[in-house]
Computed example of a mutant assay.
Amino acid sequence: MLNMTDRDATLDRFADAFIETTDSYRIARGDDVIHAPMPDGEVVARATEFLVTTLFDVLRDTRLEAMADRIAWGIVHSFHKVAGQIEGEADKAAMAVRRLIEQNDGSEIGSVELEEAQMLCQSLDETQDALACMRDYAAATYHAEAGRPWSAPRASLVSSKRTASVVAATDYLAARRKRHIDARAPKGPVVIFSGGQVWEDHRLLYAALDSIKVRVPTMVLATTGQDKGCDAIAAAWAARNACHLIPFSLDRKLGNRAGFARNEQLLRLRPVEAVVCQGSGLQSHLAREVRRLGIPAHFFALADQHHNRAIR
């Protein structure tokens, strides 16, 4: 179960995510417009937690206990998948709004069409925010139960025929783009993190990251973006501590150089600190470069697990 501090922070996030951003709501063309309110954030938070915890509770001490982990993982993944689908639809809707802004001739028909397209885009963004909030809380609940983490608009128009709907749509797209940029390029001192895909002791890594955050409270965590092992633990820590996370994925087009190129990307961020855990040759390469550049670092070997040891 989550402690009271985590729960209070979660309820604050749900309160922010579950607010109406538009009077009318529609997430598919041709659907009827809905004027109903968003569900109560606190109620949704409790329901999300209940979905995950109930599975562990009813299967505990039975021969199906081992299945709780798998099923609960799937629940979190479902939230993740649907949130991703809605985000993609929102991006397409935003492109449609941009196209209509360019084509807008000031006519009533054009203005109405633009307003409807903006409502669709805004509704999808609102939905994605809510689903992502549910996913993050489901993932945190899974972690608490399982003991391991779940792994630009164009320039403004100057035509004298520009209408209020064009102004509103342009402003909305600008705000939407800024939010996406802020999420993808957060500002703050960068801490880089990398490790292998096989790792059990999340407490060791949590303690290291906790100690860094005390010294660097506005830190941004940049990882090598793997979906299991050390990077998954770091991602779970970031979600738990409301820390901006930048996962760097491999550029497969670079072939065998992809991993080393990713290491170079991380180092170009001018990190203020690093955490490198034993993994493959890529982690060894990153550790050597971190030492060469004199970046303050924590190095963990597989043998350090459950012993709270680190080579600095």
Rank of each mutant, 00 (worst) to 15 (best):
P189L: 05
A183P: 04
L209C: 07
S211C: 12
G196K: 07
Y206L: 09
A183C: 06
A208M: 12
K213T: 10
D201C: 07
G195F: 00
R177G: 04
K187H: 13
K178Y: 08
H202W: 13
Q197V: 09
T218M: 13
A222T: 03
G196I: 03
I192P: 05
V190R: 00
R215S: 11
A183Y: 08
W199Q: 04
T218G: 12
A208I: 14
I212H: 00
F193I: 10
W199T: 01
L204H: 02
A185Y: 13
L204E: 01
R184M: 13
V198C: 08
V198G: 07
T218C: 14
I212M: 14
P186C: 06
P189V: 03
V214E: 14
A183V: 03
L205G: 06
E200T: 13
H202C: 13
R177K: 08
D210V: 13
I181D: 06
L209V: 09
A185D: 11
A207L: 12
T218Q: 15
V190G: 00
P186G: 07
R184H: 12
D210W: 12
A222Y: 04
R177Y: 12
Y206W: 15
P217H: 10
G188F: 00
G188P: 05
P189W: 02
K187E: 14
I192N: 03
R203P: 06
I181L: 09
P189R: 04
R184A: 13
D201G: 05
K187A: 14
R203Y: 12
V190I: 09
V216L: 11
W199D: 03
S211R: 15
I212R: 05
H180A: 13
P217D: 09
V190S: 00
H180F: 03
A207R: 14
L204Q: 01
E200K: 14
V220Y: 01
R176D: 05
V191F: 01
P189H: 10
M219K: 09
H180E: 12
I181C: 02
Y206M: 10
K213S: 10
R176I: 02
R203D: 14
R176P: 02
R179N: 11
S211V: 07
D210K: 14
K187R: 15
A208R: 11
L221I: 09
M219Q: 13
P189N: 10
V191G: 00
A222M: 03
M219G: 04
R179E: 11
H202K: 15
G188L: 06
T218S: 15
V190Y: 00
R184P: 00
V214D: 08
M219Y: 07
W199S: 01
L204M: 04
I212K: 02
L221P: 06
V216N: 04
K187C: 11
A185S: 13
V198W: 08
L209H: 08
G196A: 07
I192Q: 00
D182R: 11
R203A: 13
V220H: 00
P186L: 04
V190Q: 00
W199V: 05
L221G: 04
M219H: 08
P186Q: 02
V216T: 12
L205T: 09
K178S: 13
L205P: 01
G188Q: 05
I181M: 07
R215G: 07
R203K: 14
H202Y: 15
